[in-house]
Design a binder for these strands. Sequence first.
DNA 1: GGCAAATAATTCAATCGCTGAACAAATAGC
DNA 2: GCTATTTGTTCAGCGATTGAATTATTTGCC
Lengths: 412, 412
Amino acid sequence: MSLTHAPAGAVRQGSLRELNLALVLGRIASADRPPSRADLATATGLTRATVSAVVEDLLAGRLVGESDPAPRSGAGRPARGLVLADQGPAGLGLEVNVDYLTVCVVDLAGQVRHRTVRRVDLRPVDPADALAQLVELAGAARDDAARHGLTLVGAALAVPGLVDDAGVVRLAPNLGWHDVPVPALLAEHPPLIEQVPGVPALVVDNEANLAALGELHSRPPGPSSFLHISGEVGIGAGIVLDGALFRGVRGWSGEIGHLPVHPEGRPCRCGGQGCLEQYAGQEAIVSAAGLARAELPADTATARLAELARAGDADALRALHDAGTALGVAVAGVVNLLDLDTVVLGGGYAALAPWLCPPVLAEISGRVLTAAWSPVTVRPSTLGAEAAAVGAAGSVVRRIVAQPAGWLARTG
Amino acid sequence: MSLTHAPAGAVRQGSLRELNLALVLGRIASADRPPSRADLATATGLTRATVSAVVEDLLAGRLVGESDPAPRSGAGRPARGLVLADQGPAGLGLEVNVDYLTVCVVDLAGQVRHRTVRRVDLRPVDPADALAQLVELAGAARDDAARHGLTLVGAALAVPGLVDDAGVVRLAPNLGWHDVPVPALLAEHPPLIEQVPGVPALVVDNEANLAALGELHSRPPGPSSFLHISGEVGIGAGIVLDGALFRGVRGWSGEIGHLPVHPEGRPCRCGGQGCLEQYAGQEAIVSAAGLARAELPADTATARLAELARAGDADALRALHDAGTALGVAVAGVVNLLDLDTVVLGGGYAALAPWLCPPVLAEISGRVLTAAWSPVTVRPSTLGAEAAAVGAAGSVVRRIVAQPAGWLARTG
DNA sequence: GGCAAATAATTCAATCGCTGAACAAATAGC
DNA sequence: GCTATTTGTTCAGCGATTGAATTATTTGCC
């Protein structure tokens, strides 16, 4: 919705080709069936001649391939469908969380081509050791990817905490991390990434942000503006506005867990009072349901809670209802503020959605000014717990799609 | 922060010139002193030859003019400074509010060249009559602008309510408007606008949104992301993210007045409970201070309140402190969610800022997770009550600056 | 079976706008 | 008055898009 359509910098002669490469490749990526050159010409407004020239570049650079002709109705020479290559550049997605490490590889088309999860309680582990374990998994992933003809061109790491511009994890309370210089620690290991202009070798970002990105690009395509809430020990939100993740001035947006829902209520570790996290965080729900706190890893506690709720346990149902109500109060505020029409419950909330959604919707319909005219959808995440790592890897390949010139210049 | 740098459509041959026209004109607009062609070349990365050609087009189209040479230190041929033209295209800003009508004209450079305010209680007035009065004022403004060599190329109307995509005012409670088809009503009057490709003849938008835009482009330039809060009878917010107004999925973002600050508190006309508006709305403050409600027009009540506070009236001070605290709870939530570092108090709040800022800041520092690392600024609006109309007019000329090709094609 | 219609993709001269270097203009300092 | 310096223009060259013509390949009809 910006008024300035112009790219930030100068538009040189060569930018023209760069921009059209990105335009055509983007169309191929977002099409639901393999488009022909003629389809691309009509869709983009370019001439068929130009599209052919651009596609030739993309084919030469192995970013797209030709597929079997799509079935067509009328007469005429059959089209050759264009699809994103299943070889070539790929993204490495990494996640460090409280009780697991994840590594995955996503190809240009967004397909998950490799995935490893190692369950391990990382709270007592030194950050450098945790990252070393992650690198070990990533090395195996790289080798596996290479066997499929995939080259890792960038990595993104999801962490449950606040990350600054330099990639330093300023604070990850549930992990016990504080000012961990992730890029420096990872630089001590041999590189797994083949550098490409325009693609950063490593991005470190908040887990909720990357999970929202994963949800944004999951198939089938959903809305381009939504709020994605990751309910873990803390509660984080990824805000997607018009297909772009909103990170805030310093990249610390989405701290929905500290929205005040009872301003004079329970004190919170953030220094405030009555924060949402105190009423809808995983520990709050678990203890309200009468389960022993810290009994088991987080995902086990969640599974147990869902089990109890499914069995009709009154305490569990009440705990979930109360948490959903608190969540609904906060979400209603966010929807009023940002005018979003979709809320996705992810992370630990995904499995609890059947019990959380009703009270959340009730609060929304009671508190949102515009709810009467256009309804708000609340639904569980489609990717669930995988969202962050998949979103991280996807964010890498998406850069290639957005700026293919860098990759093409590399391979010649 | 979007990954796609490419414009939405095709990048044709001619787009190149269009983009560079916008790039150079934008630089001229945002420079703090008249830049030379050489300055523009180094700033944009284009060659001096290209800049000269682009500037020639802009000069021929009367969008820029040459100014006296700026003082320079060293040797060499003196530069000719380039400034936005003080003639040519201009924007018409309109505002309908509860107790006044405003019309203003803003030129390319953002200068307010004409301004009319008519104080009139519009609550008992039929919307069509109100708009007819506005058109009358606008006609006089057009004639005045023409005498200064200004051509109105578009209009933007600010209303205190929810507006849909078609420009229909769905609901303006304090004005008593409901489903008012503003574009259709205005179309019955003779047109005042000279149509230009790329510039809509009429945009209708929320008053808080346009006030935020006015603040964004006020001089001296402030931050590019902030929250602008218009405290009138209702409380609206304009959210500016990375220099762009965020409107939400349907254009109804910013309803900060209905953020819950006491979820089980006073019932609100929106159907919810404990909304901010019930604690920090103008009526709430005025009655808490012991002033007779609906005693006087809103701005008079605000002025009286400020007067009492300045005199040390205990009731007024307490009312303002309580309102500021409620506001702070809501703002803290917004800052946690969006990671903004600047909050601007506008509308009726501007005059009350000395008493509202301290409690707002107190709540922020107590509740915002990241406040310890980077402080949040809370300050009054620089434009005050004029912000909405000026922002409306400014949004028109900003389109010309962002897409000068449309205007140039028009005049040849 | 053969032919016309239809659709896909390529080829090629023309054109548009940027580039880079040379050149002209204008001033300060010596 | 001369040189160094900076600004701005001119011009041949070039890359990328364009639009029309051409080639390629299939369906449908007689």
